[in-house]
Design a binder for these strands. Structure first.
Length: 883
RNA sequence: GCCGAAGUGGCGGAAUCGGCAGACGCGGCGGAUUCAAAAUCCGUUGGGGCAACCCCCCGUGAGAGUUCAAGUCUCUCCUUCGGCACCA
């Protein structure tokens, strides 16, 4: 007796909308809870089943908190600037804002169809001028504090596409789309000085309730402690400064390496070496970072002809240039200690350079080393430092260097400044203008020259700076991006002088850096948000989102938050107290192997778990006989089960389930609209929460939906029966109160799968009773309501209560009913369970022992043997050791 | 290569302050209901031995160890997934 979700769910959605059930205001005296979802990019393909996973989880917590008396802020919005809409515009001429609005409509409809408890009156859209005006405002604050600056940075410019590409869009120097050549071109870019906050971004992670993400961020920031040391360059006044974390190995520095892109590289090269050095530097410059590192190739480099002086040994050591030293890290130059660094060792072998042992594992010295010894040990061949353990010597060496003026302590970071401009149309305009020298009107084709050295901030009153309308979104031959062609927008005159607007736009990260703040007070036109709104809701108590944003988004948002903190706009140093990443939902497909002839025709089928197919030298798979093999795939609906195992319906071979990221090519994509239509939103929500632990990667199994739906149908059937107002019998009461307890605790700990399992057990129990106790049904419906809100509302009114169930208090439980006076204790003999005895929960050991030894099953194994020892844990176990 | 997470039935998973491995669900098998099917309900379902749903043995990636007791703790190894990738 299934209920009709197609009637029930829309009806309650309309009710919630009409009653404004989800609108929140702060009520005096209530605790608050801010449950935040990472807002989506509204793509053209709509919601996929991965989205509702995290959203359902926060929705459950939000509803649970609300029923527990909290004021809950649970908002949703759109991260709507981005490349796909711009690409679509290039192809079709449709304005990106039109595409974006259309996609937002779809997303909003889909989310509403899932019954999420969002306060839609707080919806934000990063492309709305009322929103990005404040994104621009924050940029101006960054600019004023000197945290936004311009620099020449090499980019991947693809002349054929007329656009700048991201590193991952370039493969072997060709564009991913269309295989056009890509050149590295220095381009003026805006950068944000996130490095100024590196120390705090690393240190402030400490108290946060975040998962492994904290470590990822620390690794990304890459703080290290060491020293800068100056190496005098021979025949020059200059010194070459290096950064090292191993000042204890200074005596072992037998050569130096300077990055090919270091400012001094060409300067120090000797005349006879200059050409070679220049050629090497030129080649290195053309390589992308990926190429330089991807192959993990053999070390290359050239001798510059210059020498430096090791300040401690006072030996002359050669200076090489090599691309294994990065210009952007440290000082762009290193002292090479081949005895104690693997890369330096490899390079030294290649170029036949001296390897000297200065750290010994045991204090004895060796004449030659087979490999670099990179661990800590004891100093040798290090003058007065001999015999010092590495850690101690590092401290002493830094003090020594500082005393002599040869070097200084230094903390270094891997983190680099954030390139904050994109040569795109569909992004926030950067609110900066530059003076222009011109002999006429640059909008009418007069010559002009823009003085990029003198950036001028717009007045705050001039915000928002909107995008101009464009007819044509095609990229052009100007790396400055499509806005450079919007002459009417770009140039303007003030007080008789000409100015040009910045034509770069902000990256997609910008809008998502502070959206959680705008939700607080989204319609405020005079401020980002009011102080009252901030104090009412911040900080975020639970932040849910994919771990693909573990580093960049979360680091950038924290950076902006700290800047806002420093200028007094926010009052907490960190915005997100607790962070949880929901696991990816994978698509499932079933593999079998097809042995094929030259034309691809099927010769015979092999089991999907066959070990016979092996990678063929010419690519693909083949058998030992040389026959070619192809992987073939079936969907969950296509397979058949024989003897409990999945098989191919025609060929009968076994098929093997393989879970992979959902993709069209694999045919394993699931559309939530279909699920809502066929099973209902509540079923989708319950199923996704029941699949397994929230944070784990899980394969989607359409068949699993059945179980969730049966559970809901069963609830409906139970609540539809005549209800008995008498208190439930004791076993029912015990189970009921334990279930409420478990569901309460599991929701707090985000263990939704086991909470659902507990509710299923209770539902199965109630289903088997002759009379249905009202108390049990009502409490169960309340427990279910955060998971399956539509059905819960329906059943709540069905049992005679008033909507909305969201305003009903969360059910309590009686702790006394959650504990047993008499418990069944398993009895082990020599560690194996041989019987069970009923005991009072606090029975004494001697009582327990007597009961156990009287048990027949136990006696069989103890008969005629001496009891050597008894281990008794009251209420848990009794173990009798005989021998 | 480095960092992180994880390996439990045919499948998703449960049980980690060490204490009955396999809760709950999917799938399978048997039955009830039905003219029949779907749906629903009941029973059963880790592997093996046995006439036997008595009982016994084996079993949480592999191997060792600690313990009365190990899926859980320690060590070594294997595999899978995710991230980073010459960071001095």
């Amino acid at each position: 007796m299934a209920y009709d979700h197609r009637e029930v769910e829309p009806r309650w959605q309309q009710y919630w909308e009409a009653q404004q059930t989800f609108r929140v205001e702060r009520r005096p005296g209530r605790p608050k809870f801010y449950a935040l979802d990472m807002f989506p990019y509204p793509s053209g393909s709509g919601l996929h089943v991965g989205h509702p996973e995290g959203y359902t989880a926060t929705d459950i917590v939000a509803r649970f908190k609300r029923m527990n008396g909290f004021d809950v802020l649970h908002p949703m919005g759109w991260d709507a600037f981005g490349l796909p809409a711009e690409q679509h515009a290039i192809q079709t001429g449709t304005h990106p804002s039109a595409t974006t609005q259309q996609n937002i409509e779809t997303f909003r409809r889909q989310l509403k169809s899932l019954g999420f408890f969002y306060d839609w009156s707080r919806e934000v859209d990063t492309t709305d001028p009322g929103y990005f005006r404040w994104t621009q405002w924050i940029f101006l604050q960054l600019f004023r504090k000197g945290l936004a600056f311009q620099a020449e940075i090499p980019v991947n410019w693809c002349p054929a596409l007329g656009t700048v590409l991201a590193n991952e869009e370039v493969i072997d120097g060709l564009s991913e789309r269309g295989n056009h050549p890509v050149v590295r071109l220095p381009l003026r870019q805006w950068q944000l000085r996130i490095t100024a906050y590196a120390e705090r971004l690393a240190a402030d992670l400490e108290p946060l309730d975040w998962p492994e993400t904290k470590q990822k961020q620390r690794d990304w920031i890459g703080r290290s402690e060491g020293a800068e040391v100056d190496f005098p360059i021979l025949e020059r006044d200059d010194a070459l400064t290096v950064y090292t974390t191993r000042p204890d190995t200074l005596y072992g520095a037998t050569y130096m390496v300077i990055a090919p892109d270091h400012a001094l590289t060409l300067e120090i090269a000797s005349a006879d070496r200059l050409e070679e050095v220049r050629a090497y530097a030129e080649a290195a410059r053309r390589k992308s970072d990926m190429e330089r590192t991807a192959l993990n190739k053999e070390k290359t480099g050239v001798f510059t002809g210059a020498y430096a002086l090791n300040p401690l040994t006072e030996q002359q050591i050669p200076i090489f240039t090599a691309d294994y030293v990065l210009g952007a890290y440290g000082t762009g130059a290193i002292m090479a200690v081949p005895g104690h660094d693997e890369r330096d060792f490899e390079f030294a072998k290649r170029f036949d350079l001296a390897v000297v042992e200065v750290v010994s594992p045991d204090g004895t010295t060796r004449e030659s080393l087979d490999a670099a010894f990179v661990e800590d040990g004891v100093a040798v061949r290090s003058g007065a430092f001999d015999g010092q353990p590495s850690a101690e010597m590092r401290r002493n060496m830094i003090a020594f260097l500082e005393q002599r003026g040869l070097g200084r302590r230094k903390v270094n970071f891997k983190l680099r400044d954030w390139v904050f401009s994109r040569q795109r149309y569909w992004g926030e305009p950067i609110p900066i203008v530059f003076p222009v020298r011109t002999d006429g009107d640059p909008r009418r084709g007069a010559n002009f020259e823009i003085d990029y050295q003198t950036p001028i901030a717009l007045e705050e009153s001039e915000l928002p700076l909107r995008l101009p309308e464009l007819e044509d979104f095609q990229p052009g031959d100007d790396p400055h991006g499509p806005l450079a062609r919007a002459l009417e927008w770009r140039f303007f005159q003030r007080d008789g002088r000409w100015f040009a607007r910045e034509t770069n736009t902000m990256p997609q990260w910008a809008g998502s850096c502070w959206y959680y703040l705008r939700y607080l007070d989204p319609r405020n036109e005079s401020e980002m948000f009011s102080r009252e709104a901030y104090d009412a809701w911040m900080p975020v108590d639970l932040y849910m989102g994919g771990n693909e944003h573990a580093v960049l988004h979360l680091l950038y948002a924290r950076f902006w938050h700290k800047v806002l903190f420093d200028i007094g706009v926010v009052t907490h140093p960190e915005p997100f107290l607790k962070l949880v990443h929901q696991g990816l939902i994978l698509g499932l497909a079933y593999r079998w192997y097809a042995v094929v002839d030259g034309a691809g025709g099927l010769l015979r089928a092999l089991d999907g778990d066959s070990a016979e197919p092996a990678p063929a030298p010419e690519g693909g798979l083949a058998l030992a006989t040389g026959e070619r093999v192809e992987e073939r795939w079936l969907s969950e609906q296509q397979i058949e089960t024989r003897d409990g195992r999945p098989v191919h319906p025609e060929h009968g071979v076994r098929v093997v389930a393989v879970a992979e990221k959902m993709s069209k090519s694999r045919g394993n994509v699931v559309n939530p609209d279909d699920v809502v239509r066929d099973f209902g939103a509540d079923t989708l929500r319950v199923y996704e929460m029941f699949m397994g632990p929230l944070e784990q990667v899980k394969p989607w199994q359409t068949s699993g939906l059945q179980g969730a739906r049966r559970f809901l149908d069963r609830l409906h059937a139970i609540a539809s029966r005549p209800l008995d107002d008498a208190p439930p019998d004791e076993p029912t009461a015990k189970l009921l109160h334990r279930t409420v307890k478990k569901v309460t605790e599991d929701i707090e700990a985000l263990r939704f799968n086991t909470a659902i399992s507990a509710m299923m057990i209770l539902a199965n129990h109630l289903n088997g009773l002759r009379v249905t106790p009202r108390d049990a049904v009502e409490r169960l419906v309340l427990c279910v309501s955060p998971f399956a809100p539509h059905l819960a509302e329906e059943l709540w009114t069905l049992v005679g209560r008033r909507a909305s169930i969201l305003d009903a208090p969360w059910p309590g439980f009686d702790p006394a009913l959650c504990e047993d006076e008499v418990v069944e204790v398993p009895v082990q003999v020599n560690g194996k369970v041989r019987g069970k005895v009923q005991l009072a929960k606090d029975a004494t050991e001697s009582a327990a022992r007597d009961a156990a030894l009287a048990d027949e099953g136990v006696r069989r194994f103890t008969e005629g043997k001496a009891v050597r020892k008894v281990v008794y844990v009251p209420g848990r176990i009794l173990n009798v050791i005989v021998g």
